[in-house]
Design a protein around this nucleic acid. Structure first.
Ligand SMILES: [Mn+2]
Ligand SMILES: [Mn+2]
Ligand SMILES: [Zn+2]
Ligand SMILES: [Zn+2]
Lengths: 143, 143
DNA sequence: ACTCTCTTGCAAATGATTTCCATTATCATT
DNA sequence: AATGATAATGGAAATCATTTGCAAGAGAGT
């Protein structure tokens, strides 16, 4: 089996670091791998715990520092959903918004082309250009 | 001129406290008056400073406590825009979302019936019922 | 291997908000 | 108006998430 670099894989995160002239350390590699598998939206502590299993020397500070640097490089996204601490996810291009299940805490992703368009329109009418936006729905399963 | 109770005035906030069996203290009255004039979205410190001009005995703790209690009663809304501390505004029924001017920090209110509808649809399709949501646009003036 | 400098872990610092607690004030009742 | 039960207050200390200072350690180009 060939060594393939899947999109959204860990190697593109490493590439971002490399291109920014940043060093690829053991702890960064571990953190990047966790982010790369994706799927969920872990907070710093969850990331720290998972990373610790791979490399017991990792510190929470390093997790925070790495998140900051990756965010600045645009490699990850930071979300601060209501209530809790910041949560992170690999930014692999395709933008989406979130629906948070108030009972389970689950985060469901969605994307509405129409809403995206309408946002642009609204901003334009108000004389603005959108730099970023945040749309979060908080709800419960319908019985 | 008759003593009129305008909608969104200070007296309805007082009424909410009264109906909840809460006491109307000098400091709460001052804070409520500031919220009632509305217009902007002050954070706790701004609220504290403005209130202090009216009543020098007010403490920041009281501002926070009052915001918490009013939020629980649904009398005000708490917003945590990116970056800064929580900001508050009188919840006078009419829901709206916000556009934040990244340069000036100004907060512009807007409301899109279409977006509100689309959100409901999305949630329904995902099997959810929306309890609350948050839509924030961050942008700059178009030149 | 050498060296320059970026990173790290740990502890201490921060900033926002909450909580503790002794004192004060509200307000229903007398 | 005085009383009393108890909610609210100010100030300090505690909490929580996150950042920062610093000395020691580790990338990576040579
Ligand atoms: Mn996501
Ligand atoms: Mn508003
Ligand atoms: Zn979106
Ligand atoms: Zn809305």
């Amino acid at each position: 089996m060939a060594e393939t670099t899947e999109p959204g894989g860990t190697s593109d995160l490493e590439a971002i670091l490399r291109e920014a002239g940043l060093r690829i350390t053991r702890q960064r590699r571990v953190i990047l791998a966790i982010l790369a598998e994706g799927g969920d939206h872990p907070d710093a502590l969850a990331l720290f715990r998972r990373a610790s299993r791979q490399d017991a020397t990792i510190s929470l500070s390093t997790v925070y520092r790495t998140m900051k640097v990756l965010e600045e490089k645009g490699a990850i996204q930071r979300h601060t959903f209501e209530g809790g601490p910041a949560r992170f996810e690999h930014a692999d291009g395709r933008h989406h918004d979130h629906l948070i299940d108030l009972d389970s805490g689950a985060v469901i992703e969605f994307r509405s082309e129409k809403i995206e368009k309408l946002q642009e329109e609204i901003a334009r009418e108000l004389g603005y250009e959108i730099v970023s936006h945040r749309l979060e729905l908080y709800g419960r399963r319908r019985k």
